[in-house]
Amino acid sequence: MSESKTQKKPKRARIAIDEHFCKGCGLCVDNCPQHIISISGTVATSGYYPAQCPDPENKCTGCTLCARICPDVAIEVFKAKKVDGGAH
């Protein structure tokens, strides 16, 4: 089993898929290194089966590859703000 099952990582990043724009081509699914994007079984109002990324295990790293391959600018990527540790 994955380590996250036993020791869940904090959410580092997430993506937001706009169902209005997504045409369900699935290129994001293939390009996600974490394999956490899938195609929904529910038709969106657009008429397409949109991509979805529930990511319960907080695997998303915010690499943006899904957004960069998306032909429909349907994906926004959010990343956790770095905590200012006063390193310098």
């Binding site: 904090p10 990043a13 943006t64 960069r68 600018v73 926004e76 990527v77 959010f78 990343k79 703000k81």
Partner: peptide, 16 residues
């Protein structure tokens, strides 16, 4: 630490 509440910044969005 409440991970869901952690502040997120948008790093990829639709270009202007």
């Amino acid at each position: 630490m409440n991970t869901e509440a952690q502040e997120m910044e948008r790093i990829f969005e639709r270009p202007r």
